[in-house]
């Protein structure tokens, strides 16, 4: 290999390179960079920003008066109440579950640990419709427990308990998923230190573990809450769509939409979209401010 070959590789004539300031060794050209940024912005703009904007534009299409009228409707109010109720039950339950599971998985070694972690993830990979269906098959009139429930005059599916169950099912993983990797990373040395200093187990948990995971916990609760309030498929299957009784906000959106009452549908949708935005802002703030205090792997 000779000097000649080196010049060939550079692809510039002798004397040529002197006038050029080469760009940094490992970066794209300015044009390539601009193209990539434009592509990313275009893609996200088209698929994410536009639908979000559309929700608010459609909701306000006939003016603020029409928009507000939607919320005077008792059925809408009932839907909002039910959604809040369901979230108020599902989120605390999954919070307690998440803390328990994370404590057991992250602080102890036992056989079948990775199986348990996989099981916690199941609701993420099951179709929402299937998540609802399982409760119909369990508690429905033709379900396994159907006859027994009917004999005792208890109704679970096509009633509020079914909606709560389906919502709890789909939101099981959120808190646990945030806590487990973080608590595994943190290990047990701080807790052991607290114990050697005479703290009780509960006190150790409250004064050592909890402060270490509080931001990840908040993060998980936020995501859990957003999903709980917005779940559609699973809830749709178990709800029975009784207006004013078993209609959550997302289901109410569907009913209004199918009745061609678009302004009202988008008005209710705008509340849910607002909730999504608040969640995103809080999530971004948490990541930005306390990124180090959150776990590393966040896929969902």
């Amino acid at each position: 290999m000779s000097e000649q070959a080196a010049d060939d590789i550079s692809g510039t004539p002798a004397g040529g390179p002197r006038r050029l300031r080469p760009r940094p060794a490992v970066a794209e050209t300015a044009a390539m960079r601009a193209l990539l940024i434009a592509t990313a912005i275009g893609f996200l703009g088209l698929f994410v920003v536009l639908p979000l904007v559309a929700v608010f534009v459609e909701a306000l299409r006939r003016g603020i008066g029409h928009y507000l009228e939607t919320f005077a409707d008792p059925d809408t109010q009932a839907a909002i109440r039910l959604t809040l109720t369901v979230a108020a039950i599902a989120v605390p339950l999954n919070l307690v579950f998440g803390l328990s599971a994370a404590w057991a998985v992250a602080k102890f070694d036992f056989p079948g640990k990775s199986l348990l972690i996989t099981l916690i993830d199941i609701p993420f990979s099951v179709s929402p419709v299937v998540s609802g269906l399982v409760f119909v098959l369990l508690f429905g009139a033709q379900g396994v427990l159907g006859p027994w429930l009917a004999a005792h005059d208890l109704q679970i599916v096509f009633a509020v308990p079914g909606i709560v169950l389906a919502t709890v099912f789909v939101t099981v993983p959120y808190v646990a998923r945030e806590l487990i990797p973080l608590m595994q990373e943190q290990g047990v040395s701080e807790e052991e230190a607290a114990l050697t200093l005479g703290a009780s187990g509960l006190r150790t948990f409250l004064t050592v573990t909890l402060p270490n995971v509080k931001w990840a916990l908040l993060y998980g609760v936020l995501l859990c809450n957003a999903r709980a309030m917005g779940e559609f498929g699973a809830v749709s299957v178990v709800s029975g769509h009784v207006r004013g009784l078993t209609n959550t906000m997302p289901l109410h959106v569907e009913i209004l939409y199918n009745e061609y009452n678009f302004v009202a549908a988008f008005a209710v949708a705008s509340i849910l979209a607002g909730l999504a935005l608040v969640t995103l802002v809080a999530k971004s703030l948490l990541e930005w401010r306390y990124g180090d205090a959150l776990g590393r792997s966040r896929l969902y």
Partner: peptide, 18 residues
Amino acid sequence: DAMVDLPFALPTAVAGIA
């Protein structure tokens, strides 16, 4: 960066009608 997560956060029914 924040917008990337919107499909996680936005209820599916809302995305559907939009």
